[in-house]
């Protein structure tokens, strides 16, 4: 039995599939200070979404898999509370909760603090792993991706080797906007210095961080009934500047159709994609820190509409 007086430290490890959670988890567990505390793992299994249990190097640890067919919702709470009960009965001094890319961290925290085990666990920190190359793409479509960043006590920007300098620069600004207080650690293979973790402090979050807050990162799909004037299109992009994180799709320019892609300010175009309707304009813009209506209004200047 664990000493009733000492709460068990909990680390939440969040981040989208492919961000590098398993690598980061292995790095954490191999750290003698952390790994020596008989940590238990709660793994939220949903296909490829969670940490791949087989890739966790330390197979000796107690592992609890949250495996709920009804998926993603409050239904997982029952299994989660069962796991916490079992851990509280053991002799663990730490717990790592792997939050899938679709977990709302606010839910996990409420399970810890409001459930029947209130007081037995101490949330030590919410770590959010961000994929440097793909975060700005995914954040517009998956609400929890931004919620996890906003809720984080520390952000680990992983796979920096896969992102250009421009992308990393813009990503840094986006993350700072979403969460100005969390320290950020840039790495390429999920490695974290123990000193960085030691410096992480739990920050109490306000109610307005609930996921219904207006999204900072939006995605809008646009079309055009008439050919698009190339110069007008570029003028719109210039006006929008860094608000446009990404843009992708076929555009029927007056001068001829092209497949356009913009990644953090870097513009490129090539032959229109065959699987799309080559003659039609259909593209998606991911933007940040701008109102959706303002974005649509800006593109209307070159004849593009939703």
């Amino acid at each position: 039995m664990t000493n009733e007086g000492e709460p068990i430290d909990v680390w939440i490890l969040g981040g989208y599939l492919g961000a590098g959670k398993t690598t980061t988890l292995n790095a954490l567990l191999s750290d003698p200070v952390f790994g020596g505390r008989n940590p238990a793992l709660i793994i939220n299994e949903f296909g490829r979404m969670g940490v791949d249990g087989a890739l966790v190097e330390r197979q000796d640890l107690s592992r609890f898999e949250i495996n709920k067919g009804s998926l993603f919702c409050i239904c997982t709470k029952t299994d989660f509370l069962k796991a916490l009960a079992a851990i509280a009965e053991g002799d663990h001094q730490a717990v790592v909760i792997e939050a899938t890319g679709i977990a709302e961290p606010v839910d996990i925290e409420s399970f810890l603090t409001n459930g029947p085990h209130a007081g037995r666990f101490r949330l030590r920190g919410n770590l959010c792993i961000v994929d440097a190359a793909n975060f700005t793409k995914i954040a517009a479509f998956l609400k929890p991706a931004t919620a996890q960043v906003r809720w984080a006590d520390a952000i680990i920007i992983n796979k920096c080797d896969c992102a250009s300098e421009d992308e990393r620069h813009v990503l840094g600004k986006v993350l700072a906007e979403l969460n100005p207080t969390a320290p950020r650690w840039e790495t390429s293979f999920g490695n974290i210095e123990p000193a960085f973790l030691e410096g992480v402090h739990r920050t109490a979050r306000a109610e307005q961080l609930r996921p219904c807050a207006p999204e900072k990162i939006i995605a809008v799909s646009l079309t055009a009934g008439e050919p698009v004037d190339y110069a007008a299109f570029r003028t719109v992009l210039e006006r929008l500047g860094e608000h446009v994180l990404r843009l992708k799709g076929n555009i029927a320019f007056t001068e001829g159709a092209a497949y356009v892609e913009i990644v953090c300010g870097r513009y490129s175009q090539k032959e229109p994609l065959k699987q799309l309707d080559e003659a039609a304009t259909a593209f998606t813009v991911i933007a940040w820190d701008i109102d959706k209506d303002a974005l649509i209004e800006a593109f209307s200047a070159c004849g593009c509409n939703v």
Binding site: Y16, L17, G47, R48, M49, G101, I102, N134, K137, I138, A140, F141, L142, A219, R246, K248, T284, I286
Partner: peptide, 11 residues
């Protein structure tokens, strides 16, 4: 499709 769907909603 798994969670790849979120990436493909843009790609």
């Amino acid at each position: 499709l798994g969670t790849d769907i979120f990436m493909k909603m843009f790609d």
